[in-house]
Nucleic acid binder design. Structure first.
Ligand SMILES: [Mn+2]
Ligand SMILES: [Mn+2]
Ligand SMILES: [Zn+2]
Ligand SMILES: [Zn+2]
Lengths: 139, 139
DNA sequence: AATCTTTTGCAACAATGTTGCTTTTTTAGT
DNA sequence: ACTAAAAAAGCAACATTGTTGCAAAAGATT
């Protein structure tokens, strides 16, 4: 349980609690994205499902984590490494879903491209999800 | 109930049934994407929920409709206008979610860009979802 | 340490999705 | 058109996932 978690929570004006530290640590210890279900399993039966839902919601609102769109009805969450703020995210990176290991990664260095839209449409946010084989799995 | 639906179903070697025709027609009559819930409402209480689930599943497998990734845990479906085949989709267009009317549209003429990935990653499929204001809503 | 505030856990509920089985409908062959 | 075989629909039961209100517990502040 690194000291980091307390700092991150305090910096975001959140009270420091066991579940918040635990859940935040899962994200810090992990390169990929996590679904609510993953957290429920890895947290080790310790926390109520409702607490996890509420914690994830607060983390998203504070700009600590962001959601990743998927085509299969599961919301994924990953740490924000960009300069996200409360109520305002700035995640402009591409997400990668591996068909083999099933993990989803933030490709923090791959910036979402601009998209030329037809007249009349204006873009506020662009999400790119690439599906394929990740580095680990192509070795 | 246009003649089209029967043809489309037959072309895909599916038996022609009332629910399949009804659901297929909802997609044909509609420019935007539909969620399972939308279909349940618009079909007018006529069909069992299970039938709708199974119909959507079959349509996706046959390449008649495709799913659209969302960040809010709802699977959206839209007609395939590209040359999709059974078990193999070829939808390479961008999807647009309007923040105002909440509709999701296939921008069939906007092709998904290539993404340069870090070494080791290989792409099989690229999904782009643009969020903003649609043409209708910006008038 | 005492108080005030926030978060947690619980229970109950709602919504969504799945499965097995029976009945009904469709299809294909006569 | 009639019949037999095959496929799909409907139903019920269940599983999973997400939501809400409220009392108890824990955290922050003085
Ligand atoms: Mn990300
Ligand atoms: Mn589409
Ligand atoms: Zn992988
Ligand atoms: Zn709109």
């Amino acid at each position: 349980m690194a000291r980091d978690t307390k700092d991150i929570l305090k910096k975001n004006r959140l009270s420091v609690t066991a579940s918040r530290e635990k859940i935040l640590n899962l994200f810090l210890d992990q390169s990929g994205a996590l679904a609510h279900g993953d957290i429920e399993k890895r947290a080790g039966e310790k926390f109520d499902r409702v607490t996890i839902y509420r914690t994830l919601q607060v983390f998203v609102e504070k700009g600590i984590i962001h959601t990743i769109p998927t085509a299969d009805n599961s919301i994924l969450y990953a740490l924000c490494k960009d300069d996200c703020e409360e109520g305002h995210h700035h995640d402009h990176h591409v997400h990668f879903v591996c068909r083999q290991c099933q993990n989803t990664y933030c490709l923090d260095n791959v910036v979402t491209p601009d998209i030329k839209l037809p007249t009349g449409y204006s873009a506020k946010q662009i999400d790119v999800v690439v599906e394929g084989i990740c580095r680990q799995c192509s070795i």
